[in-house]
């Protein structure tokens, strides 16, 4: 473990180089459009929702990157889980995530989604978000600054353009049993509609 954060930049570039050669031009074009037009679901789940207004309005204006807030999960591509998440909120977050149409991504804000944050010993918050949902990008901070949130979107754009095969929504389909087991451990068995009915026919 050398000091600071391992430089994330070049680890992504060489991954992109290796994938770019295998992608056809059309796939690269589609990935470009997906990266440059991201619809975020208007759902402030935790205290990070206080840093979204400055990011989406005139001070930091994330619409320059093509990011717009939309009202319903049907129209959304990205779900921002902003900070801690109580089981009651997690049920609604999972339901919203499952209603979104693919390809869909999750951004986890703050340290509470990584390892429990400062509510690590609270009986009513979940500790690791990626036990229950596939998280595509974590943004560090308590609460992350608008610039950090934009940095998260920029890195997510690179990841979308890289069109990597283990993106979040693919993992949610392939490893659904793992996520389902964790969800049932928390909520009991009969709560959620089983998500896999509507991808039963698809080739995983």
């Amino acid at each position: 473990m050398d000091e600071g954060f391992i430089p994330y930049q070049q680890s992504l570039e060489d991954e992109e180089q290796s994938i770019k050669s295998t992608q056809s031009v059309i796939e690269q074009a589609i990935a470009w459009f997906r990266a440059h037009s991201m619809f975020v679901l208007a759902y402030g789940t935790g205290c990070g929702a206080i840093e979204m207004p400055p990011t989406f309005t005139s001070r930091y204006d994330i619409e320059r990157l093509g990011v717009v807030g939309v009202a319903t999960p049907r129209q959304a591509d990205i779900l921002i889980v902003s900070g801690y998440c109580s089981p009651k909120t997690l049920k609604r977050v999972i339901r919203s995530y499952e209603q979104m149409s693919e390809p869909k991504y999750i951004i986890g804000l703050g340290s509470c989604t990584i390892n429990g944050g400062m509510y690590w010993d609270s009986y009513n918050t979940i500790k690791k978000l990626d036990d229950f949902l596939p998280v595509d990008m974590y943004v560090n901070g308590c609460m992350p600054r608008p610039e950090a949130l934009i940095e998260g979107f920029v890195k997510l754009q690179e990841k979308i353009r890289a069109n990597s095969s283990e993106a979040g929504y693919i993992q949610y389909r392939t490893r659904y049993a793992h996520y389902r087991a964790n969800q049932e451990r928390l909520f009991g068995t009969q709560v959620q509609p089983r998500y896999e009915e509507n991808f039963a026919g698809m080739n995983l």
Partner: peptide
Amino acid sequence: EFDTLAYVNAHYDFR
């Protein structure tokens, strides 16, 4: 008498 850390260790696991 409700110990929140015991409840957390029973229901959640850390990284």
